Simulated assay, not measured.
Amino acid sequence: MEKRTTYHEQIDIDNTLKLREVLRTLPDFVKDFFRAISTTTSTSTRIKYAYDIRIFFQFLLTENPAYRKFTMQEFTLADMDNITALDLEEYIEHLKAYKPLDDDEYITNGERGLKRKISALRTFYAYYYKHEMIQNNPTLLIDMPKLHEKEIIRLDADEVAKLLDFVESCGDELTPHQRKYYEKTRYRDLAIITLLLGTGVRVSECVGLDVEDLDFKNNALKLLRKGGSEMFVYFGKEVEKALKDYLEIRKGITPLSGHEHALFYSSQKKRINVKTVENLVKKYSRQVTTTKKITPHKLRSTYGTNLYQETGDIYLVADVLGHKDVNTTKKHYAAMDDSRRRKAAKAVKLREE
């Protein structure tokens, strides 16, 4: 029997092939770095590093007069050694708004984008410095971009109920043409949104599910979590019903070859992708709230907050969400919510009534 290639295995294959293509455009010495980190990083991390490092070399080619006549493959470790902290400060400023090669559209980076790119460069430089291939590491002489804390956005209990009700019944408010399309995807969309709200799985974990990953005997999902570990996540009756209703519809779908095992199908009868799930969450949630930008990750935050409020067990929340560090969980899900703040307003009496 031929071995089935899972979604995550296919992603790794695709990323490996993409990485090889990117490395062909970069200086030869860069390959040493990627070989060294291949056993400690995911393919997703490595391809992101490759794109970020390529942006750095493109910056040197277009913005640094010393390298105007270079091609990217001509850079050497000696050139790396000549880069100064001032060059890197100019690079950070460049990243805030720049045009990639062969593109007229500006790309911008906020705090998190800047930090990721400088972190990639630090890791890159650290490898060559540690192995004494260069004498200087200018990335240690610059400050990392500061991240300002963002308010955690999640749905309130009444908004969760409204969202699920809307997905179930909004066909009543649509034109006949809209309703025809809506009816095709209603059970799938309801199953996806109920699953995200009822288990807190990541959107990448959701789209990667195969039908064989469902266990209705124990009401469990088998997940490959971030970092590569496998675990079971359990779900309740509402998720069970939404999944079973969708599976009845799924029986009538003949998928494209290679997509037979996917749990959730797109309208093209292929495995649904992350972008499609993001779009459907956005489409439904804006009918419920206009002040919150709801994404699949916000549904995960909603689940995490609800689980913490119900159990008060931050370690359980960390485990179920697949966080390796409980401090990440504390930061996001143990934040004081509005209802507790309102209690604080009534707790202190200034004068006896």
Rank of each mutant, 00 (worst) to 15 (best):
Asp103Asn: 12
Ile92Asp: 01
Tyr51Ala: 04
Pro27His: 05
Lys69Val: 14
Pro27Ser: 01
Phe59Ser: 00
Met80His: 03
Arg54Asp: 04
Phe34Val: 07
Ile107Arg: 11
Glu111His: 12
Ala78Asp: 13
Glu74Tyr: 09
Ser38Val: 04
Leu60His: 00
Arg24Ser: 14
Ile13Cys: 10
Gly113Ser: 09
Ile11Asn: 08
Tyr106Asn: 11
Ala97Cys: 08
Phe59Arg: 00
Thr71Phe: 15
Glu89Arg: 14
Ala85His: 04
Tyr49Asp: 03
Thr84Ala: 02
Arg20Lys: 14
Ile11Ala: 10
Ile53Ala: 06
Leu23Phe: 09
Tyr67Asn: 03
Pro65Gln: 07
Ser38Glu: 09
Lys69Glu: 15
Tyr67Met: 07
Phe56Asn: 01
Lys117Ala: 06
Phe56Arg: 00
Leu17Trp: 04
Phe59Cys: 03
Phe29Glu: 05
Ile11Trp: 02
Val30Gln: 00
Leu17Tyr: 02
Asp103Val: 04
Leu23Ser: 13
Asp104Lys: 07
Pro27Thr: 07
Tyr67Cys: 03
Tyr91Ile: 03
Tyr7Asp: 06
Pro65Asn: 06
Asp32Tyr: 02
Lys31Tyr: 10
Thr108Leu: 13
Val22Cys: 04
Lys48Met: 07
Lys18His: 12
Lys117Ile: 07
Ala85Lys: 01
Thr62Leu: 11
Val22Ser: 04
Glu63Cys: 12
Ser44Phe: 14
Tyr51Asn: 10
Phe33Asp: 04
Lys117Gln: 13
Ser42Trp: 07
Gln58Thr: 10
Asp28Ile: 09
Arg35His: 15
Glu89Tyr: 08
Thr45Pro: 01
Asp103Phe: 06
Asp12Phe: 07
Lys18Arg: 15
Tyr91Asp: 00
Arg46Ala: 14
Glu90Gln: 14
Glu105Leu: 07
Tyr49Val: 01
His94Asp: 02
Val22Ala: 07
Gln73Val: 05
Leu61Trp: 02
Asp12Cys: 11
Lys31Thr: 12
Ile47Asp: 05
Asn64Thr: 02
Lys69Ser: 13
Ile37Arg: 15
Arg20Ala: 10
Ile47Pro: 07
Glu93Phe: 06
Thr71Asp: 15
Thr71Gln: 15
Thr108Cys: 05
Ile11Cys: 07
Thr41Met: 11
Thr108Gln: 15
